[in-house]
Design a protein around this nucleic acid. Structure first.
Length: 420
DNA sequence: AATCCACAGGAAGCCCGGGAAC
DNA sequence: GTTCCCGGGCTTCCTGTGGATT
């Protein structure tokens, strides 16, 4: 009976999504509304080398979700299409500097990209098959990349996304090498597109790199609520079944994201999660209520991610707070947290930090928004911090579970012991 | 008004690991 | 390989503090 009901429910419920992939950040849309001027500017700069001019390097600024990456991917994709009919072939290399963030790895990635291309077109005896991801001297990798690239007449467009992360971690040396290449290359040309969230990262650069890298600068301003609404409507049309979105849903998503520095990615996430919540509940339409709950879910998920990346001592402090929460839902004070924490440490066989240090860890948790702490004075009972948990205890538990130092068995054990 | 609690949080310095320079 | 330097995590020691209680 139950099974029959289960399946009939699934079959009877009308689907909500046509294709939810269009709402994911990985999707590069066919058209990018409200980015026409930036796209034209980009295209104009990148088209110059096809006419034989020396390419300019481009630096793109803008906060997250303002369409920087999508615009660059869109324009470079079009450029590659056109280059088939042009005498100068265009080769695009996209590198996300959050993952590839050292000089060696950048050069190795570039070298391997061009070696592979060269191998396809003709055999290059004097060059190696590929560069290992570790081991070689860095200048050897550079030479290899240089020769592999110059082996053919082409324009290399190197996109360095999140370039600020690279500079912060490994300095600007590799950028210096790349920006100087054009003067040494005989056959090919290179054009660098740097994408950055951080407007100040240029201050960390060598002046020569700075001027060369920012021959052309493009700024992507945040979208306003109206623009976000327009973007969402276009995307919703292709990703949702017609008529499943109730009035006000898109406006609410747009308004929400506009408040958070006009982040389109966030607006799309909100809409997608709202749709998924509606789908999971078997509702036929996406309502503003779904959006509100989606907002909460996204916030909570973000928190779980934050907790997962916490060092184990901080996790232990947080876990102490959870134990106290379950024991007595009234206010928790820092002294209690410390004594529970000490118990947990001895149970788990971990070093016990001093109260001073745990106080700092509590402040850090507060800063991250995982807890709220405020200083209260209780007269003769002294001055302390009153702590409130901002995440549901079960979510904290879920986030901590993978921790190796604190196995869940130890936690359960110590929980029983402290519960006396 | 004075006292005193139970911490908060600043200052200084130790220790250790990682990276750069020699 | 060794030395030097730096930054982060941590401890020790310390002073400061709001308000209930005396």
């Amino acid at each position: 009976m139950v099974r029959e009901g289960l399946f009939s429910m699934l079959l009877e419920t009308r689907p909500i999504f046509k294709n939810r992939e269009f709402l994911r950040p990985s999707y590069t849309p066919e058209e990018l509304p409200h980015r026409d001027s930036q796209i034209h500017q980009l295209a104009r700069i990148l088209a110059a080398p096809l006419r034989g001019e020396t390419p300019s390097n481009i630096l793109i600024y803008g906060k997250t979700g303002t369409g920087k990456t999508a615009s660059v991917k869109y324009v470079t994709r079009e450029l590659e299409k056109v280059s088939d009919r042009s005498p100068l072939k265009v080769k695009l290399v996209y590198i996300n500097c959050e993952e590839v963030n050292t000089k060696y790895r950048i050069l190795a990635t570039l070298a391997n990209t061009f070696l592979e291309k060269l191998r396809c077109s003709r055999d290059a005896v004097e060059l190696p098959e590929s560069v290992p991801m570790t081991g070689w001297p860095t200048d050897e990798v550079y030479k290899c990349f240089f020769r592999a690239m110059d082996g053919e007449k082409q324009l290399a467009v190197i996109v360095l996304d999140e370039i600020d992360k690279l500079v912060l971690k490994s300095g600007d040396e590799v950028l210096y090498n790349l920006t100087r290449m054009n003067s040494d290359l005989k056959n090919s040309k290179v054009s660098i597109i740097g994408i950055s969230n951080d407007l100040n990262f240029m201050n960390y650069l060598d002046p020569r790199v700075r001027s060369s890298l920012s021959e052309e600068e493009l700024v992507f301003h945040p979208y306003n609520a109206l623009q976000l609404k327009d973007i969402l409507e276009k995307r919703a049309k292709i990703s949702f079944v017609d008529g499943v979105i109730e009035d006000g849903v898109i406006s609410l998503c747009a308004a929400n994201a506009a408040r958070e520095h006009g982040d389109a990615r966030r607006a799309l996430d909100l809409l997608r999660v709202a749709g998924e919540l509606a789908e999971r509940q078997g509702d036929e339409k996406v309502s503003v209520d779904h959006v509100r709950r989606a907002y909460e879910k996204i916030e909570q998920d973000k928190m779980v991610e934050v907790i997962k990346t916490l060092p184990s001592q901080s996790k232990l402090v947080l876990y102490s707070i959870v134990i106290l929460m379950e024991r007595m839902p009234r206010s928790i004070v820092s002294g209690e947290v410390y004594s529970v924490y000490r118990d947990l440490c001895s149970q788990a066989g971990l070093d016990v930090l001093t109260q001073r240090r745990v106080g700092d860890l509590i402040s850090e948790l507060d800063l991250l928004g995982v807890i709220s702490a405020k200083i209260v004075s209780k007269g003769r009972q002294g001055r302390t911090k009153e702590i409130k948990l901002n995440v549901h205890p079960t979510q904290v538990m879920a986030a901590i579970q993978g921790e190796q130092l604190v196995t869940i068995d130890t936690l359960k054990l110590s929980r029983q012991l402290t519960l006396v």
